[in-house]
Amino acid sequence: MKLERLPLPGLASIVPSRLGDKRGFFSEVFKDAWFRENVADVTFVQENESLSATIGTVRGLHFQLSPFAQGKLVRCIAGKVFDVAVDIRVGSPTYGRWFGLELSMENGAQLWIPPGFAHGFATLETDSILSYKVTAPYSAEHDRGLLWDDETIGIEWPIDVNEVILSEKDLEQPRLVNLPVSFTYS
């Protein structure tokens, strides 16, 4: 597996090796001991999948508060997405900064997003499916979000932002300036 530490402390890109021939390929996409030793010593408790049927669908930016704060290991198993993490750890030298990475079946890349980041993505192809492992179960009571197009964050979405498809929930999320302290940097 190829590991790359990303510009925001805690984020990592992981690209599993693929062994292929004329039939296709084989890949070990997750190894618990390798992940614990090289990325984060965490336990994944749930795996989720989401299908976004239309190009330009934006989901996020989402996170959960403690004690249900989630680390996420995200990969795209069909289609293509632009996956984004925003540092919301008060006191972090990269507070309010974002990082985006294209995830697709073709590139096999995965993004590790530890607790303390808001997460979201935009679909770049129809019928895009994200699969992601999480370190805490979903809790509606602890579920929070951040506005996907907050100009102070300035995410450069590679889609037509005038044509996005959003849920009502994601349309009503707060801007960073109005976000209560959810995480602190240590």
Rank of each mutant, 00 (worst) to 15 (best):
R89T: 07
V58G: 06
N162I: 04
L101E: 03
E156V: 06
W98N: 04
R5C: 07
R5E: 14
L11W: 15
L166P: 04
P158A: 10
T94S: 13
W148I: 13
L147R: 11
G60I: 04
T152C: 02
E172T: 05
R175I: 07
V161H: 02
D21R: 01
R36Y: 11
G116F: 02
E172Y: 03
W98G: 03
E106F: 10
F68H: 15
C76D: 08
A136M: 03
L179R: 13
S186W: 11
A109P: 01
V58A: 07
L146K: 04
A40L: 05
S50L: 05
V45S: 08
D83V: 07
S27C: 15
G154C: 06
L51F: 04
R23K: 07
T126Q: 13
G116C: 03
S186E: 15
E47N: 12
L3D: 07
P158C: 10
V58F: 00
P174T: 12
N38V: 01
D143Y: 11
V177A: 15
A69N: 12
R18D: 00
L179H: 03
W157A: 00
W34Y: 14
H62D: 09
G108H: 11
V164G: 05
A85V: 04
R97L: 04
D21N: 14
E168A: 14
R23G: 03
N38R: 12
L3P: 02
Q173F: 07
P137M: 04
V39W: 15
G56V: 05
V134K: 00
E151K: 10
Q173K: 10
S128M: 11
K31R: 15
V45I: 08
Y132P: 00
T152Y: 02
R59P: 00
R89D: 00
G10P: 02
N107R: 09
G60Y: 04
M105C: 13
K72L: 08
R23T: 01
Y132F: 06
E106Q: 14
Q110A: 10
T184V: 14
I153A: 01
P67N: 13
W34T: 04
P158Q: 12
P137A: 02
C76N: 08
L130E: 00
A122P: 04
R175N: 08
F30H: 15
G60C: 10
L101F: 02
G116P: 00
W112S: 00
L147Q: 09
V84T: 03
L61D: 01
F63P: 02
F25Y: 15
E156Q: 11
E163V: 09
N178Y: 11
E102L: 04
I155Q: 02
E49K: 05
